[in-house]
Amino acid sequence: MGNKVNSTCETCPQYNAKGLKKLGLNTENVDFVVALAGNPNTGKSTVFNALTGLRQHTGNWPGKTVTRAEGAFEYNSQKFKLIDLPGTYSLLSTSQDEEVARNFILFGKPDVTVIVVDASRLERNLNLVLQILEITDKAVLCLNLMDEAKRNNIKIDTRTLARDLGIPVVPTSARFNEGIPDLIQTINEVATGKIICKPHRIKNVPKNIENAVKTLTNEIEQQYPSIPNSRWIAFRLLEGDTHIIEALKTGELV
């Protein structure tokens, strides 16, 4: 499946161990902060556990991780802190989970955001992916549950997907530890700037909204030339997000 079938030994401990050290709860003095986002029940916690060696509860239930879980791992002697965000379908609404996830990606400014998606329900999952790509341009798509997709006869052209989204795509089956080494490698490359992402920007916005967003984006960029995600801020301002208004006032966003 996909582009990067490495060796038959992909799942054996020796392979996994190379360069990777699971650090569990020890999250001090990290070099990079990595956020795990995604729809509920796509395997975020499973990925989190695979990377950190922790045993976060995973359940076949939409809506399990409500509080933020943190852990760490080391790769090529660089320390990564990993944060398992609550699963959400979107970042546009007002629910508590969405607020936690949205605020962390926006204000926490993670070095990399790993977006875990369900390979057999890609279209539905892309809704969230596209929103996240408006906020941050350092992201990795973790195409999880590949085994289920295979079972359902779904094939995904990861190269096309990576090109269209403008971020690296790594197919995994986290439950069976497949693709995890690749994922770590890719996270590392994005964090260190070896891979530069050119994330997709939402195109099909209705004309009247797009015009308003453009006007507002220009205005914001004039005032804050260094802001990386002015378009997202414009979306949120039009939505009436008081948190963003507050953040603009305090200068938290720049």
């Binding site: 279209e123 809704n127 992916v129 596209l130 006869n153 779904i154 094939k155 269209d164 195109k203 009247n208």
Partner: peptide, 25 residues
């Protein structure tokens, strides 16, 4: 506003998924 935005995002999603996914069955 919210409807328009949500529909827009899903339209993008459907284009991208359409190009990358092929279901055999």
């Amino acid at each position: 506003f919210h409807d328009g935005l949500a529909e827009g995002i899903y339209a993008d999603a459907s284009e991208i998924a359409g190009a990358a996914v092929s279901a055999d069955d």
